[in-house]
Amino acid sequence: MHELGLAREIVRIVTRAAAGARVVRVVVRVGAWSCVEPTALGLCFDLAAAGTPAAEASLEVKRTEAPSRLDELVVEEMEVV
């Protein structure tokens, strides 16, 4: 279950960048070859975000098929309030 480790990193990245603000939406890009299962990542994100300023955030997973980005795993943007 590497998705849990990845979800923890996503939460770490957004909560640090949010600097105390509440995170309501997170968009990540996941390359088609990156061995990440979007549904599993979503479930793990909810677990990892519990009790953090991202606890209420929705996670949007964009799957990228571009040949040069098949391996990518990127936090693209977030929305804070």
Binding site: L6, E9, I10, R12, I13, V14, A17, A18, A21, V24, R25, V28, E72, L73, V74, V75, E76, E77, M78, E79, V80, V81
Partner: peptide, 17 residues
């Protein structure tokens, strides 16, 4: 309605660490 959020562009590698 809740005040619209501020979108923050991150472009940060999840496995960056």
């Amino acid at each position: 309605p809740e005040a619209p959020g501020r979108t923050v562009r991150l472009e940060e590698a999840i496995l960056g660490r």
